[in-house]
Write a protein that binds this DNA or RNA. Structure first.
Lengths: 130, 130
DNA sequence: TGTTGACTTGGACCTTGGTCCAGGTGCGAA
DNA sequence: TTCGCACCTGGACCAAGGTCCAAGTCAACA
């Protein structure tokens, strides 16, 4: 079983990509654009991600997947890099985003009702035409 | 008061755009791409939207705003045009979409909890550093 | 010791969803 | 009847977010 070893330290880009569900090219793209910080490199110059780096990717993906634009995620990453201890700005950014996500969930829920109404309409028409 | 008149029949593209919150260019773009059906034209060749046409736009915007790709909305529009009475396919399409929206609301709600967790973490760190 | 296979880089290309612009037309007010 | 304005068309342009490709490097294995 290779599992125990795979839990530990330093994976290559392909393995990380697979683990987080991204294309390796997407990870490189994010790095070029500052969305992700540059990872360590092994002796041969290849990218090497420890578990902390992988965890950061996973957190940032939660932000992306709740609609935060890459440019905004990049700000977050830069805050971490510039001042790893200074948590205040990051906290503000997250709270902002949290509010937006909550709002979007509310508006989607409303739209869901509109769609349901339309479905009900159509169902009635379909039943009438029987 | 112009209000009573504005409620009635046949608005031009700018007025409709304003009413539904779109750029007139966006409405033309949607029409070119089949997202919206071609509207009536007045004597001078200008687009003219009656209340039914405006209502259709509003419904389609609910689909768009819950993440349905324009290509999918276009299918819906074509179903209406091809067979105005045949409601079954439209119903299936809407139910599909409804399920996707419901799922998305669930996953976003989960991500919201992850973000909240991160906020709590940061808050604890900020409090410790005081 | 040479071939494989995974990696490296930079840049070209792609899709989605618009937005903007130039050049032309037609209607109503002055 | 001429001005001005809203509209028309077709096509260029834009931004975000990737994806793909060519050419080169390196480590390991036969």
């Amino acid at each position: 079983m290779t599992n125990a070893d795979e839990q530990d330290q330093a994976a290559g880009i392909s393995e990380v990509a697979e683990r987080v569900g991204l294309n390796p090219d997407t990870i490189r793209y994010y790095e070029r654009h500052g969305v992700l910080p540059p990872p360590h490199r092994d002796a041969g110059g290849r990218r090497s991600y420890d578990s902390g780096a992988v965890h950061l990717i996973e957190v940032l993906l939660h932000l992306r997947d709740t609609g935060m634009p890459l440019a905004r995620i990049t700000e977050f990453t830069h805050l971490v890099a510039r001042d790893p201890a200074g948590v205040d700005e990051r906290l503000a950014l997250l709270k902002d985003h949290r509010a937006e996500v909550a709002k979007r969930i509310r508006t989607w829920t409303k739209s869901l009702h509109v769609i349901d109404q339309k479905i009900t309409d159509y169902q009635a028409r379909a039943d009438n035409d029987e």
